[in-house]
Design a protein around this nucleic acid. Sequence first.
DNA 1: GCCGGGATACTCT
DNA 2: GAGTATCCCGGCA
Length: 210
Amino acid sequence: MEPKRALLKKLTREFYNRDATIVAKELLGKLLVHEFEGKRLSAIIVETEAYMGVSDKAAHSYGGRRTQRVEVMHGDAGYAYVFMVYGKNYCFNTVTREKGNPQAVLIRAVEPVEGVELMAQNRFGKPLKALTKPQEKGLTNGPGKLCEALAINRSMNGVDLCDSEIYIEDNEKPVTDIVETTRVGIDYAEEAKYYNWRFYIKDNKYVSVK
DNA sequence: GCCGGGATACTCT
DNA sequence: GAGTATCCCGGCA
């Protein structure tokens, strides 16, 4: 029997329909799942960032900006916002708050749980055993890296996390030790770069930047 | 172990 | 045509 699995459940739209800062914090410790080619790829969320929308100079939706790329952020909570940065890396976000209030939470790092063998293949094209120590540590410790490991790409932009093969599950283990600090890679954002809107699980080795 | 620079292609001006 | 919510590798310590 598998009592633990039975207790896990998919997060609801109500969960996502709150401010990004709250959702970002509560997503820590939850399980990001992708049912990929009949297998479960899953990983514990250990680092997130909140993008608070219209008033947040770091957000793509700052000032109500509404282009093709950000369109999903303007929609309802609980949908995936996936975009490409620097030509080769994808970033996975969950949209938060209701339609018309374009906030999102960026998943920056996760800790592999199920399907680790496949993640090694996705990232490095070789079996887990063959990975060097740095490669093992670098499996999912960054926004672009976790997308590659979990086989997340542009085709998931706009999918409903409440009703698709990619979703986030609740986890009975509460996270207590949370570090709140500044976000990464947003030097252009003036005063917003100093906001403590990045959250991570203290002492977790998969966190991208301490 | 830390630091610097180049890759890379998509998005918006 | 410029900028980018990153990653990786090589050089030096």
